[in-house]
């Protein structure tokens, strides 16, 4: 039962009595599985939340992906299940150890211990004309990170970004933080769609954009 809005390889499946987003692959973080499909929890994954909320991500399955802020590999493991070559950038060593475990059974998932704020330190590994950059980094200057990584995207590629308000300024009003971030983003990207992810992630804004 494939869904036209979802990329090929992502389906809504009956798992443990509930209809849930799922991809086919080896389980990574103890998620429920059924018939080789593993549930993709939108509350643990910004991209999962964006798909669940019906964002037009432009993902069709099989594309080349650069994932910034891969952390322990929760989301990027699902991405690697349905996408093509997937570059996973993570800066902190401890989660990267779990990311390596997620990469073990996935032969097109490339883990990189790099700082997403410094794309020149991985541009010699990550190829050009990437179809989708997925960004979920919890640092200040999330729009700057997106701008610096625009160099990897194909002309019609997509940036799928989750802006975390609290990483920019823990005390400011999230709406103001989002406005500032979007203004900066518009210098490099055309913003196609934005929506709050509050149903799954409090004070996060989901953004779909394409390079200018």
């Amino acid at each position: 039962m494939s869904d036209p809005d979802l990329p090929a390889g992502v389906e809504r499946r009956e798992i443990a009595g509930e209809t849930r987003l799922a991809t086919r692959g080896d389980p990574v973080y103890g998620e429920p599985t059924a018939d080789g499909w593993r549930a993709w929890d939108p509350e643990r994954s910004k991209l999962g939340g964006m798909l669940e909320l019906g964002f037009d991500t432009g993902l069709t399955g099989g594309e080349t992906v650069l994932y910034l802020g891969a952390a322990s590999g929760t989301t990027v493991s699902h991405v690697a299940d349905f996408a093509g070559p997937t570059y996973a950038v993570e800066f902190a060593p401890r989660p990267a150890r779990d990311l390596l475990d997620a990469a073990e059974p996935r032969d097109r998932l490339f883990p990189l211990l790099k700082d997403a704020r410094k794309p020149e330190t991985y541009a010699h590994v990550v190829e050009a004309d990437i179809d989708a950059v997925v960004q979920d980094v919890a640092t200040r200057g999330q729009a700057t990170v997106a701008a610096r990584n625009a160099r990897f995207l194909a002309e019609d590629g997509r940036l799928l970004l989750a802006v975390k308000a609290r990483s920019e300024d823990a005390t400011a009003d999230p709406d103001e933080v989002f406005e500032t971030a979007l203004d900066e983003l518009r210098e490099t990207y055309e913003v196609l769609e934005t929506s709050r992810l509050d149903r799954y992630h409090e004070d996060h804004l989901g953004v779909v954009a394409t390079p200018r």
Binding site: A103, D107, R108, F110, E120, T121, A123, H124, E127, A128
Partner: peptide, 30 residues
């Protein structure tokens, strides 16, 4: 390593004789 701009590494690597095919390149990259 460092470089400013990404390029079509899989194709360049095959052309340079580093890998036999794009698939082979990705295996080595991984």
């Amino acid at each position: 390593g460092e470089t400013d701009e990404p390029r079509d590494w899989p194709t360049l690597a095959v052309d340079a004789g580093f890998a036999d095919s794009t698939d082979d390149y990705y295996d080595r990259l991984r």
